[in-house]
């Protein structure tokens, strides 16, 4: 080993290659391995503020809780409102208050996982912070990424925020019953999604009416009988 002696008051360079985004990717991989070890399928639920992420988790949980034990990591800036809503559906919920953060990261999710009874769970939903930009840069270790958008966000939201859709496995276009008054064509939104990510499965939903929930379950490969492996 080469030891360099420095004189008092002398400047020197310290080379370091600490990649902050890569660190998140490594932690995400570790989360993924932990989940796989326990046979848990994890779904990262992303989307804009108020698009219907919590409603989606409620609807999916109601239908799947007969056959699967479900856990939820609810990312919320400051409140426990979303977590309380999901608890009512019989899922095990860990609340992660991100405080000032605009996204969940793999470290926060890793901590939340330590609070869940992993050996009992089959399925885990992770509700990300409502935001279409930042979560795209921070993988969490989930196996599938579900993006929930709604027609009330206007006709250009996909083309304006392509990144979040690029990594999505399933995209739900929610609140379609409001499409006409909003003057938004869900088919156009679907085309925009497929232009960015031809492999995505796009489902139209009206979650208040529990419409399209079954299609989302199918698109996520969560049909009854199919195990946690999917």
């Amino acid at each position: 080993m080469k030891v360099i002696e420095f004189q008092e008051g002398e400047s020197f360079d310290i080379e370091l290659e600490e990649d902050l985004l890569k660190r998140n990717q490594q932690l995400a991989q570790a989360n993924g391995q932990l989940l796989e070890k326990h046979g848990i399928l994890a779904i990262d639920v992303m989307g804009s503020v108020g698009s219907g992420k919590t409603t989606m988790i409620e609807r999916l949980s109601s239908r799947l809780c007969q056959t699967k034990t479900i856990g939820v990591v609810a990312g919320d800036l400051t409140t426990t409102i979303d977590a309380d809503r999901i608890v009512e559906k019989g899922a095990q919920v860990v609340e992660v208050n991100t405080g000032k953060e605009c996204h969940l990261d793999a470290n926060l999710v890793g901590k939340a996982l330590r609070e869940l009874p992993l050996e009992k769970l089959d399925l885990l939903f992770i509700e990300n912070v409502g935001n279409l930009i930042c979560p795209a840069e921070f993988p969490l270790g989930a196996h599938k990424r579900l993006v929930v958008i709604s027609v009330t966000e206007g006709p250009h939201m996909v083309v304006k925020h392509p990144h979040i859709f690029r990594g999505a496995d399933v995209v739900a276009i929610n609140k379609v019953e409001l499409a006409a008054p909003m003057k938004v064509d869900p088919e156009e939104l679907k085309k925009d999604v497929l232009a960015v990510n031809p492999g995505a499965q796009v489902v139209k939903t009206s979650l208040v009416q529990d419409q399209g929930t079954k299609d989302v379950i199918e698109a996520l490969g969560l049909m009854a009988g199919s195990g946690a492996e999917a």
Binding site: G9, S11, F12, I14, L16, E17, D19, L20, L21, K22
Partner: peptide
Amino acid sequence: GRECLVKKITVKK
């Protein structure tokens, strides 16, 4: 093109 890192710092003792 996907990195975000601290490459180098110059310091004085």
